[in-house]
Simulated scan of single mutants.
Amino acid sequence: MKKQVYIHSVRMAGWIMFNGIMCSSIIDNKKYANKKVFVFAENKEIFDIMSLLPAK
Rank of each mutant, 00 (worst) to 15 (best):
S25T: 01
F38Y: 14
V5Q: 11
K35C: 06
V10S: 12
N34E: 15
Y6P: 01
I27K: 10
I21C: 11
Y32S: 09
I7C: 11
M1N: 05
V10P: 00
S25P: 00
K30Y: 09
D48L: 08
M1Y: 05
R11K: 10
K36T: 08
R11V: 12
I16C: 04
V37E: 07
Y32L: 13
K35R: 13
A41T: 00
Y6Q: 13
D28W: 02
K31N: 13
K2R: 03
A33V: 02
I21F: 08
D48G: 10
A33K: 05
K56F: 11
F40V: 04
F40P: 01
Q4W: 01
M17I: 07
A13Y: 00
N43C: 07
P54H: 10
S9Q: 06
H8K: 08
G14C: 06
K30E: 06
S25I: 03
G14A: 09
V39N: 07
N34R: 04
K36I: 15
M50D: 10
M12R: 09
M12I: 07
S24T: 01
A13P: 05
I16R: 00
I26F: 10
I26L: 05
I21L: 12
V39E: 02
K30W: 03
I7V: 13
A41Y: 10
K44Y: 05
R11S: 08
V37M: 11
E42N: 01
S9F: 03
A55K: 02
I16Q: 03
S24R: 01
S51T: 02
K31A: 14
A55W: 12
K30H: 13
I27M: 07
M17G: 14
M12S: 05
A13T: 03
F40H: 01
L52N: 06
I21Q: 10
F18T: 03
P54K: 04
G14Y: 05
F18A: 15
I49T: 09
L52F: 05
P54L: 02
F40K: 01
A13S: 15
E42I: 05
F18K: 15
V37G: 06
I21H: 06
